[in-house]
Design a protein around this nucleic acid. Sequence first.
DNA 1: TAGACTACAGAACAGTTGTTCGATTGTAAA
DNA 2: TTTACAATCGAACAACTGTTCTGTAGTCTA
Lengths: 216, 216
Amino acid sequence: MMSTRKTEISSRQRDILKFIQCYLDEHGYPPAIRDISAGCGISSTSVAVFHLKKLEEKGYIRRRPDISRGIELASASDREEASVPLIGIIAAGMPVPVPSADTWSEADSADLIKVPRVLLAGAENVYALKVKGDSMQDALISDGDIVIMESAVVVENGETAAVWLKNEKEITLKKVFREGGHIRLQPANKHYPAIIVSAGNVEVQGKVVAVLRNLL
Amino acid sequence: MMSTRKTEISSRQRDILKFIQCYLDEHGYPPAIRDISAGCGISSTSVAVFHLKKLEEKGYIRRRPDISRGIELASASDREEASVPLIGIIAAGMPVPVPSADTWSEADSADLIKVPRVLLAGAENVYALKVKGDSMQDALISDGDIVIMESAVVVENGETAAVWLKNEKEITLKKVFREGGHIRLQPANKHYPAIIVSAGNVEVQGKVVAVLRNLL
DNA sequence: TAGACTACAGAACAGTTGTTCGATTGTAAA
DNA sequence: TTTACAATCGAACAACTGTTCTGTAGTCTA
């Protein structure tokens, strides 16, 4: 019963795990077994293999047999971020840019921004817009914010969307509720009033997935 | 003069570059030359080597000679995100958790969140807090938002900080301005009034670096 | 004490992988 | 046409690297 529990690892194993993370950070590719041995002061590759097996059993890493440097961290840091194209700006009196089919295939790395994948919650066909002006403070959105959008022309009740009001010729970010022929647009800031508009006056431009704000 | 300019790459080279990115995304380690050949429909490793040299000359990748899978992307996607410890919640009537010295050394991967490094703008000693309640809507911050903070006890004029008001026993996020003995706390939402407090009543808990909001 | 387990070392083997050389083809410039 | 160069193929070599085997040593438990 004194045996190590599944999630517990020895100090040597923690060393190795940390070394792998650092090496990956520094080089962009994983270390070879001999790199690990040397880096952790182990004088035999078999010892590294031994601990690597433990780490794999305990779920900290994954390995591909017979593949050089085929070590993956279970906390797969790479998979936890996505590249999203920044395709334009969003402001009150302006329709939002609409992503074209090849927005995502043409990797114009200049306009790609990194977003933690957890923020995306599995959404696909996402793109980013930079907010211009203070017209969306009722949506708790500030000038300079980055809004992550998902392509959509319909939204579920209660979801936040970028809505184009045809009559007013205005873009607004609000929670959308269908209510008997009319549509209620509810600001995120509860101190602001909801507005009721006719279904024909609204055009959903996309769902709001996330908001990034940089204060520095 | 018709020769390819430095930044231009052939379609084959773009293919290879894209393949490397995808492979890295999928596996967590770079492809071997033979993986590239197979993945791009090239039947000789020397052709891949040939194009890899071009890509390196043009600055798109870096290579380590004689190292298996020793390919680094110049756009170092890995270096573009940071892990930030999520150490607690922030709410109106509660002092914010203060990070201890070993908050950053003890990698409790459970409470680490990934943040694009561009959002950090070089800030160090950053930590994350989850916002509880709607008390900070004047700061354009919503219930459920993640606030990225930087340890600091002093702030420059105009910077946004988490401020503890001793008399009111309340946390608030505001822009801080020193104005002749007093301090003006300015909400991000311009429709809300600034408040003036005595210097002795404020205690800066940290700078606000960024805000993440997930609507889905 | 014997048995089981963890941790380590050294070495040999085999598979993976980077490198290099020679040869071929197509296009564009001299 | 000749020359130059980009792009390709095939094959062989050498280095890198993962795997495995044989030992040794220390600790804990029955």
